[in-house]
Amino acid sequence: MKRRIDGTGDRPAVAFTFAGQPCSGRAGDTVAMALWAAGEAVLRQSSKDGAPRSVLCNMGICYECLVVVDGVTVRACTTLVREGMRIERGGRP
């Protein structure tokens, strides 16, 4: 399945890990968009029932896409992906 529009992915690859697995995006991607393009939609679990949550607003408003990058909780949609990042799923916002 096609995950990027032709021509938009012609950027240097950026390697990182997500939930312990090797993963990659492109320079200029946010963490949220790199993961979406890699087929990873579930970014955190809700605190109450563990239900999967993902990107909602994609513009830094909703805090639904919280992930833990190198030990710090951040919004996946406002954080640019960088080489060597260790990204884990977030928990409670």
């Binding site: 021509g7 968009m33 949550r53 990107v55 513009m59």
Partner: peptide, 30 residues
């Protein structure tokens, strides 16, 4: 975006209209 809740709107894959525009026009992601 103004959100109006409906059953199942917390499922991954349900996004705001603006989020989809950002995904496509801002990042070229399908």
């Amino acid at each position: 975006d103004r959100c109006i809740p409906f059953p199942g709107w917390t499922l991954p894959g349900v996004l705001t209209a603006g989020a989809l525009q950002v995904m496509v026009r801002g990042f070229g992601v399908v």
